[in-house]
Design a protein around this nucleic acid. Structure first.
Lengths: 238, 238
DNA sequence: ATTGGTCAAATTGCATCCAATCTTGATATT
DNA sequence: AATATCAAGATTGGATGCAATTTGACCAAT
C-alpha cells in the first residue's frame, strides 16, 4: 500500500463520519480509536486534526475532538454555496464549449438516468446506477471547468454527514423526473454554449436539491441512500 | 496562552508562507523547522499536515512537504471562485437588508477610503488605513450573509501567497478610485435591497481585482503590499 | 558522458513515554 | 440540599527513540 497510516486513518474516519456510523456529538477518544484502527495515537491524532480542519470535527485544546453536529441551515447553506460554484463551473464549460466526445459521453449518462426512470416509478434496483450517473455528471462538469478551486471548494461543501452528492433521495418519482430533466437542460445549455442558462439551471438544480434533502433528513424520510458500504470495520475492537 | 504548540506552529508557518518568507517550491525539513520554531517534530508534523490540507503545502509520503507553487491561473481561478461566493454573500445581505447601525458603520469605512484617495494621488501613508478598511468592508458582508460555508470557502480562496485580501496594489490612482467606487455602489445596492445589482457589482469587483493582482505579480509590479509584519522570527535558528 | 548499482547518511513515519490538563467522585462546608 | 474543595484516575499534548524509506555520493560498466 502506498499510503501512510495517517492517510488511511483519515480516510476511514471520514467515511465513518460521513455515513453516520460515528454519530454527531460523539466524543472521540484517542486511545480507543487508535486501537480500533490498529494504529498508535500519533497518526490518529494527525488524522483527527485534519478532519477538524475539514470541518467534520470540533476541537478544543486539552478536551479532544467531537463529531460536529449539522443542522438544517448548515445543509441548505452548504448547498447554496455549492450552487453558485457549480453554476460558475457550468457557465465556464458552456462558455468554452466541450469536444464532441465529451458531450457524447455525458449524453450517454443522461440515457442511464432516463432508463432508470422509464417505468414511471422508482425501482430500488436502479438507485445505484442513478447515483453513479449523477456523481459522474456533476464531476465531469467540475473537471471540464478546469478550475481546481471550484472542484476543491465543492468537495468541501459536501463534507456533511448524509449530504454528499452520493446521497440520493430515491422516493418521489415526480421530483426525480424533474431533477433529471435539469440534467438534460444543463447539458443542452452547455451544448448550445449558453453560459447564462447553464449557470441559472445549475444553481436552481443544486439549491433545490439542498432544500429537498434538508426536508427529507428533517422529517426522517431518508431511506436507502447509503452507497457501497465500506469494508473497514471500526466496531470490532470497540 | 490558550493555544497549543500545534496551533501556534500552524499559524506562524501559514503567515510565513503567505508573506513569501518561505519560498514556493522550498522543501520543509522537519528537524530544522522544529528547531526554528522551538517545538518538537510532533506538533510541527501536525501543523504541516494541516497546511497541506489547506493547500499551501504539497505532501508526498516519505518525501516530506514542499511549499506549493502558484501560477497566474491559480490566482485568477481562485478569485473567480471567490467572486461568485462574495457575490452570493452580497446578494444575500441585499436581500435580507441591514440594520441602520451596520449600514452607518459601513458608510464610515467608505469615508475612510474616500479620505485616503482625496488628494488625487496615492500616498503610501494611507495604504494601511485603506487595507484595513477593505478587509473590514468585505468581512462585514461575509459576516452579515450569515452563511458559514461562504465565509470559510472565501477564506480558503485567499490561501495563496501574496493574494489574500490584505494585499493591496497601491500603485495606480485611477484603478484604486474605480475599485473603491465599487465599494460605494455595492453598499448602495445593499441599502436599496437590490440583490441582483449587489451580486453583479461584487463579482465584477472581485474578478477585476484578481486579474489586476495577477498582472501585477507577473510583471513584478508588487511593491509595498505587506501588512503589519509578524514579530515571529524563523530565521534565527536557520 | 551517461546509465546503473551500492551503501552510508539523512530524513521521514510511527510507537512509546512523560508532563500537563481535565474529569470524576467523594468529602467538607454553608 | 446545594455548593465548594480537592485528590486520584483518565485523557490529552508534546518529546524522544527507532525502524523504514529516501537521498546522494561514489564507482563500475556500457
Amino acid at each position: 500500500m502506498a499510503h501512510t497510516s495517517t492517510e488511511e486513518s483519515t480516510r476511514i474516519l471520514r467515511e465513518h463520519i460521513m455515513s453516520g456510523q460515528i454519530h454527531p456529538g460523539e466524543r472521540l477518544q484517542q486511545e480507543r480509536l487508535a486501537r480500533a484502527l490498529g494504529v498508535s495515537r500519533t497518526p490518529l491524532r494527525t488524522a483527527l486534526s485534519n478532519l477538524a480542519n475539514e470541518g467534520l470535527l470540533q476541537y478544543e485544546a486539552n478536551r479532544g475532538y467531537t463529531v460536529r453536529e449539522f443542522d438544517r441551515k448548515d445543509i441548505v447553506d452548504g448547498y447554496a454555496a455549492r450552487a453558485v460554484l457549480e453554476g460558475l463551473a457550468a457557465a465556464s464549460v458552456a462558455s468554452t464549449g466541450l469536444e464532441f466526445g465529451v458531450i457524447e459521453k455525458m449524453e450517454g449518462w443522461l440515457e442511464v438516468g432516463d432508463s432508470a426512470l422509464q417505468h414511471g416509478r422508482l425501482d430500488p434496483i436502479d438507485i445505484d446506477r442513478y447515483r453513479n450517473m449523477n456523481v459522474q455528471f456533476h464531476d465531469e462538469i467540475l473537471l471540464r471547468a478546469d478550475n481546481r478551486w471550484i472542484a476543491e471548494l465543492v468537495r468541501q461543501t459536501q463534507l456533511i454527514p448524509f449530504a454528499s452528492n452520493r446521497m440520493i433521495v430515491w422516493q418521489d418519482y415526480d421530483i426525480m423526473k424533474r431533477t433529471h430533466d435539469d440534467h438534460h437542460r444543463i447539458c443542452d445549455a452547455i451544448k448550445r454554449r449558453d453560459p447564462f442558462r447553464a449557470d441559472y439551471l445549475m444553481r436552481e438544480h443544486v439549491n433545490f436539491a439542498g432544500e429537498y434533502l434538508a426536508d427529507c433528513i428533517e422529517t426522517g424520510r431518508i431511506t436507502t441512500t447509503a452507497p457501497d458500504p465500506t469494508p473497514d470495520t471500526l466496531e470490532t475492537v470497540k
